[in-house]
Amino acid sequence: MEVKKEKSAMLSNYEVLALLQDIQKGHNKQKKMHTNIATVSYEIIQHLENTACAKQSPEVISNFMKALEPYKLTKAEKLQFLNLRPRTAVEIQLIVEESEERLTEDQIYELLDLLGQHLPGDDTEQEQEEMEEEEIVDQE
């Protein structure tokens, strides 16, 4: 065995999840899979299904990548946005290196808006509820 190139490309969690789900589907029809791949694919699917990537699709990702273009983020930073789907400013500051110099406070909030708009997640309903609550408060 010879390693030609250790890191030839980075993969998003979505791509890995899709591959493993394909493998599991394909093997249901045929004979059973080998234990190693069965174990690891089960464990990773378990882990990834609870993360943001479970609700993503190729269109969602490509739209999101286009939306991120003006911010001059690195590949790794964009990838972590996809995988982690940060919801707070402090998370963005963690992911983006030297964020204080590279992003203004307004840009961080723009990014949070973009993340909420483009990437589907659990908290959209919650946000709506919050919005409704705010409206009620306003009416009062």
Binding site: M1, K4, E6, S8, A9, M10, L11, N13, V16, N83
Partner: peptide, 10 residues
Amino acid sequence: MFVLTEMKDT
């Protein structure tokens, strides 16, 4: 988190 690695094996 995940990467692709190019390998060669017999």
